[in-house]
Design a protein around this nucleic acid. Structure first.
Length: 493
RNA sequence: CGGGGUGUAGCGUAGCCCGGUUAUCGCGCCACAUUUGGGAUGUGGAGGUCGCAGGUUCGAAUCCUGCCACCCCGACCA
């Protein structure tokens, strides 16, 4: 393991790339744009999945699985949907290989051409709605509240580990409802679930908002989102929840008989978060020494490092460690005792800091003598000596984990608060954008043309129209036309 | 997909312009010894299709062509 990480202040994207690799989260694979998620990285994803899955179940959803391949014709049924994804689809055209006649290896058998080409799903609306057609006849069949955990493929030009990969893991919820209002409530409910997950578990504050027409999901009537701010001042869309109206129901003929006996199209939603959340998690909290993980998502919450010279010393320490583990483990705290004699304590300290383990306990001969342990917290890098006789270690650690969770949230919150800037002129807008970055709250005339022009001139996009937007008369920073409230601009990932 | 850059041991690199003994150094790895409260030290050792494929040449890591991958900057996107 080589030592130092690049400094965030010197090269932020290099810092990110190196951190992802050095902390054993992921690495590039032989396939362009695809990544290998390593065990430690996957453990974090599993913690995210477990929590989100629970939240989905708690709100009445069930998991199912739909196929990876989508007949090409399905994709073209919803006009704007195809347009949105056509440029980044992987296509399966053949189903057999054979040995090349000149012995040069294996080639695609031209005789094995598929009748209809298959698209590797970039998202599953089309397969799912074509299935829902068969599942829905009456209002009694509604609502359908289904989620799937899956991989999807979007053939991206430029990729970055976790933030944008050609294949990524996600969850996609797809629901069908009898009324417009119910579908709208579902859309908002799931946005709330995402926001709560981001804030309470990832310790990452987010802005809830609505996308402008330019940024809306292809095929949706309305796209809601949570937007987070990274430490380099760039915004990251962390989750989306779409109100699909009756668009997919109409495209796939999903009709039901309502209570009055009349046929009507069902109302739909879809919502998703992906392994991109891993990127958000990394960039929200980590520092120049490595990852900083929120305790609620850390695969290892507490690491115990023994400091010993002899076998006997290690045995004595191990006995003490067992007592501590017996208290922590039943309380659901994940503890790793790193008793390897192949690495020195200092090496281990650095290693677990790189991996973002929230709390470290060190026990050495001096501690055995004094009945103490040394507690170190990752977020503040502070250490304290804890007297085992004068306090309950479980209570101490629980409090510490809660403190860390709260502290890193607060830190991210303060950073964001300091980086939401209200501006009232285009000059000021460009100045803030080039200087301190972050979210910029400004008036906009509500037109696509203006948004596009601002994007072309500054690379900033409207991240969202905040749900808690204040009614405030103002004039558009670009055109001077009247505006009723501020929207959030930023450069985005 | 356009512009620029990089590819040499597990990782990071020197050598490349100007072709010529056995390809450099550091980290890591293995062995032994001394060490162990913040990434130990010494001694010895192992490890290389110089990204891949062609070409030029008596001779290629080095020159030429093509391809692949990665990084940065653009267009596209969660």
């Amino acid at each position: 393991m080589s030592k130092a990480l690049p400094k965030r202040s010197e090269d932020y994207s290099l810092w990110y790339n190196e951190l992802v690799k050095k902390a054993d989260l992921a690495e590039n694979s032989a396939v362009r744009g695809c990544m290998v998620i390593k065990p430690y990285g996957y453990s974090i994803w599993e913690k995210m999945q477990a929590q989100l899955d629970k939240m989905f179940k708690d709100t009445g959803h069930t998991n199912a699985y739909f196929p990876l391949f989508i007949p090409k014709s399905y994709l073209s049924k919803e006009a704007s949907h195809v347009e949105g994804f056509a440029k980044e689809c992987a296509v399966v055209t053949h189903y057999r290989l054979k040995n090349a006649e000149d012995g040069s290896g294996i080639v695609v058998d031209p005789d094995a051409k598929l009748e209809e080409e298959l698209i590797v799903r970039p998202t599953s609306e089309t397969v799912i709605w074509s299935t829902y057609k068969n599942w829905v006849q009456s209002y009694r069949d509604l609502p359908l509240l289904i989620n799937q955990w899956a991989n999807v493929v979007r053939w991206e030009m430029r990729t970055r580990l976790f933030l944008r990969t050609a294949e990524f893991l996600w969850q996609e919820g797809h629901t069908a409802h009898a009324t417009r209002q119910e579908a709208m409530e579902e859309t908002e409910q799931m946005l709330g679930v995402y926001a709560r997950f981001a804030e309470e578990f990832m310790a990452m504050p987010v802005i809830k908002g609505v996308k402008t027409a330019n940024e809306r999901f292809a095929g949706a009537d309305e796209t809601y989102c949570i937007e987070a701010l990274m430490q380099d001042g760039k915004a990251l869309q962390a989750g989306t929840s779409h109100f699909l109206g009756q668009n997919f129901a109409k495209a796939f003929e999903v009709k039901f008989a309502n209570k009055e006996g009349k046929l009507d199209y069902v109302w739909g939603t879809s919502w998703g978060v992906s392994t991109r959340l891993m990127g958000a998690l990394i960039m929200a909290h980590s520092d120049d020494d490595g990852l900083v993980l929120p305790p609620k998502l850390a695969p290892i919450q507490v690491v115990i490092v023994p400091i010993f010279k002899s076998e006997e010393e290690l045995e004595q320490i191990t006995a003490e460690v067992k007592k501590i583990k017996d208290k922590l483990l039943p309380a659901g705290i994940s503890v790793k005792f790193d008793n390897r004699d192949t690495h020195k304590p200092g090496w281990k300290f650095a290693e677990y800091e790189l991996k973002g383990v929230p709390v470290r306990i060190a026990i050495g001969p001096k501690d055995l003598e004094n009945g103490t342990v040394e507690l170190a917290r990752r977020d503040t890098k502070t250490k304290e000596v804890f007297d085992l006789k004068n306090g309950d270690i479980l209570e101490k650690i629980s409090t510490l984990l809660d403190d860390i969770q709260a502290n890193i949230y607060q830190k991210a919150f303060d950073y964001r608060a300091a980086h939401i800037t209200e501006v009232n002129s285009y000059e000021e807008f460009k100045e803030v954008l080039e200087g301190k970055g972050g979210f910029i709250s400004a008036h906009w005339d509500g037109t696509s043309e203006t948004e596009t022009r601002i994007k072309e001139e500054t690379k900033a996009t409207i991240r969202c129209i905040p749900l808690d937007q204040k009614q405030e008369d103002g004039s558009c920073i670009l055109t001077g036309k009247p505006s009723k409230g501020r929207v959030i601009f930023a450069k985005a990932y």
